[in-house]
Design a binder for these strands. Structure first.
Lengths: 160, 160
DNA sequence: CTATTCCCGAGTGAATCACTAGGTATTAGT
DNA sequence: ACTAATACCTAGTGATTCACTCGGGAATAG
């Protein structure tokens, strides 16, 4: 689960597609000029997105890209995994007898954390963003219909 | 909020410190041989961690590194931010009149997501890991004392 | 004094990032 | 049939970052 600028480009581009879904395909030229990313670089990113079925291209004039799945099925984790390939957890992983014996359970702990992070990002879909189109920074409308998201805005109470 | 192998090194090293907290300082040589990371590279990482007060060094024989704060005050987000400096959200950010007008709210949406991710990682502390030392993959003990963590293992129900 | 540790800076090959350049394939409009 | 618009594909490139080596210091326990 890596996360870098490349992943950001992919996610924001996918958001763009999700927002303008009903108006037909979105061209890369639009996204490029709008987001200030190179066209050819976008093409490379979309090649990866297309390979895993997250988007589908429409050729010819009036063409562009459409989402390959319904907005509520596309998760942030998928998008990031498609372009920012995962971190290599090599390093004596599996064979945990690396040293003093009782140390070095950190691999396990990291995988725990990594899994949690994945679950978190896999619980957020594109629809969670386009649902509140102009509503900038929603302010905790209780009893929400969009489940599990607003939890993130809540407590953390104990720690800071 | 970037996340790469570098951040993983820092997090696992900090976990190591947290686990062996009571046995005096931990040397970089130990972490190095245990985790298969170069000693000098570790030194560079720990220089950054020291700069923000996450660790403190003890010189001389028997020295090493100690946590700079109580384990329950050190969050994953802090560690990652200390070594993996944040993603540049440049690109027409602020001036959102980049194109057709009603498009391009994606910056805002990205910042939303980025903030959520930060909150998530800032809600996990080192103590959440060392609390269950040998307990591999805890299985949802309800009514937990360690609040907000086990929520992550729960629903996501709707999406997949 | 000496060995052990942290501390510091400079340099290096490899990989990745974001991009440029130059194509080909498909299709809507005329 | 022609043209323009679009997706699609491959190769290369400078800049940056990654993970590392090397060569030193500075502090301190024994």
């Amino acid at each position: 689960m890596k996360l870098s600028t490349k992943g950001r480009y992919a996610v924001t581009a996918m958001m763009d597609l999700a927002i303008n879904d009903r108006n037909g395909p979105v061209t890369l030229a639009e996204i490029s000029s709008c987001q200030g990313i190179s066209l050819s670089y976008l093409e490379q990113l979309f090649a990866k997105l297309r390979k895993v079925g997250l988007v589908e291209g429409v050729r010819g004039p009036g063409g562009g890209y459409r989402l390959g799945k319904p907005v509520d099925k596309v998760t942030i984790a998928e998008i990031i995994l498609a372009v920012d390939e995962s971190i290599d957890s090599t390093q004596c992983q599996g064979t945990e007898d690396c040293h003093a014996g009782d140390r070095c359970m950190t691999h396990q702990l990291w995988e725990d954390l990594s899994f949690r992070l994945y679950e978190f990002l896999n619980g957020i879909t594109l629809s969670d963003f386009i649902k509140r189109p102009e509503v900038k920074r929603v302010s905790v409308d209780q009893g929400s219909t969009s489940n599990h998201i607003n939890k993130m805005f809540q407590p953390v109470t104990g720690s800071h």
